[in-house]
Design a protein around this nucleic acid. Structure first.
Ligand code: MN
Ligand code: MN
Ligand code: MN
Ligand code: MN
Lengths: 218, 218
DNA sequence: ATAAATTTTTAGTCTTATCTAAACTTTAAG
DNA sequence: CTTAAAGTTTAGATAAGACTAAAAATTTAT
């Protein structure tokens, strides 16, 4: 039995440890969870006793195999629910996260499987993030930040790095969505802004925007 | 802010006080909640302080207007989710309750409204129970127990009083469902069993069954 | 290499929701 | 009307999860 709070910690540890495989620090966990380091330490001990993380005092934590599977299961549910909210109910992509944070904790294997089937086995959520399958495998997609694309190249928007409501609303405002064709017209060295052509409309976007859009080159 | 546990107590008090408008006893609440009377007393005090129930020591509780609305909101969500599980995912009516017990606590007004719309504004759940509307009004349906129907009369099954998995599976086994036509052939005074014709098949059912099926006479 | 700064852990407290045991109130019998 | 039984509340304890303040370990800087 994994509690709701434990699930949230596991998810956070998973996301923090996703790229570099080094161990995750207590402070980093506390910061992401918007709690205090002492609370994180308490929870880490509990997760360690349950065999969900490997922990050495002062050296941070890493998910164990069971912990990894538990984290992925929660992320799977989160993303499936986000697809449901956008595709079946009329939520927009900036409204789904908060509700999915609640729905991801519903415990029913059958529900998850039936929901997945009802949604026709989606492979990614409304923000372009991959949906793990029922075995915990995460489909890999090669994507890069728009900021890395060279001048003159054409690409297609496949995801967002920042999925905050503010950023998503900014994208909506300028009709930038998953699937949008983007051509890099020019890049400004000074402030790392870039001029791009999106949906045949030319626009200059800031470094902040270019560093939070994932694209795939054609 | 009403906690998950408070919501469950409110729901229980609502159901216990549904028919007789007398106040609900501590013991009755504790029993339904599968907890101890002392725990119920603690919670009652908390609900009373929040203005959700009217409470006098040793005299039991009654829901206040706010408490009633909070309880109905939870029941509304419970029943809408049950409809979703049966109509959209392939759950059977004996599998939905446990999952709905979790889903009923998801807090999102928009989710509830969109779900209701997605389901085409159902007025009853898979067990024949009415679904409150967004204002908290509960559609009333005149129904009576099959046990009360006189010999020779024809009626139609419109709900179950006991919605336990065991009873629902029994009904499935004999192809008794909402909408089934039932004619009372004869009644046995000794054990209150009755012989009925359901879907053109004659069958004798026990008092237990007849007292847990709601019907509407034609 | 030592001191200072930072990070992490521990100790002790708080809140929510639960429990047992004991005390108190109400109800039912005699 | 008094006593026994049943129902209810209080007192004190526990577990989960969080917090503050203080101690300990590690890292960084002089
Ligand atoms: Mn999300
Ligand atoms: Mn997402
Ligand atoms: Mn139910
Ligand atoms: Mn129901």
């Amino acid at each position: 039995m994994v509690t709701l709070s434990e699930e949230n910690y596991l998810k956070t540890i998973f996301h923090l440890g996703r790229h570099d495989k080094a161990s995750v620090s207590t402070n980093a966990i506390a910061q992401k969870m918007e709690t205090k380091a002492s609370s994180a330490t308490d929870m880490i001990k509990k997760l360690s006793e349950k065999g969900l993380v490997d922990y050495q005092k002062y050296k941070g934590v890493q998910l164990s195999e069971n912990g990894r599977l538990a984290a992925i299961s929660v992320i799977r549910k989160h993303r499936l629910w986000e697809v449901f909210l956008v595709n079946k109910l009329s939520f927009s992509w900036d409204e789904v996260h908060e509700v999915a944070e609640q729905l991801e904790h519903i415990k029913s294997e059958k529900l998850t499987l039936e929901l997945e089937s009802f949604l026709d086995y989606p492979t990614q959520d409304p923000h372009g993030d991959p949906i793990p399958d029922s075995n915990g495998s995460i489909p890999s997609t090669q994507k890069l930040l728009l900021a890395k694309v060279k001048q003159g190249h054409q690409c297609i928007c496949v995801g967002v790095k920042d999925s905050s409501s503010e950023f998503l609303k900014y994208l909506d405002k300028y009709k930038i969505a998953l699937g949008s064709q983007i051509k890099v017209i020019s890049k400004e060295a000074y402030d790392e802004s870039m001029t791009v052509k999106i949906n045949d409309i030319q626009k200059t976007i800031s470094k902040e925007v270019a560093q939070n859009l994932f694209v795939k080159t054609n």
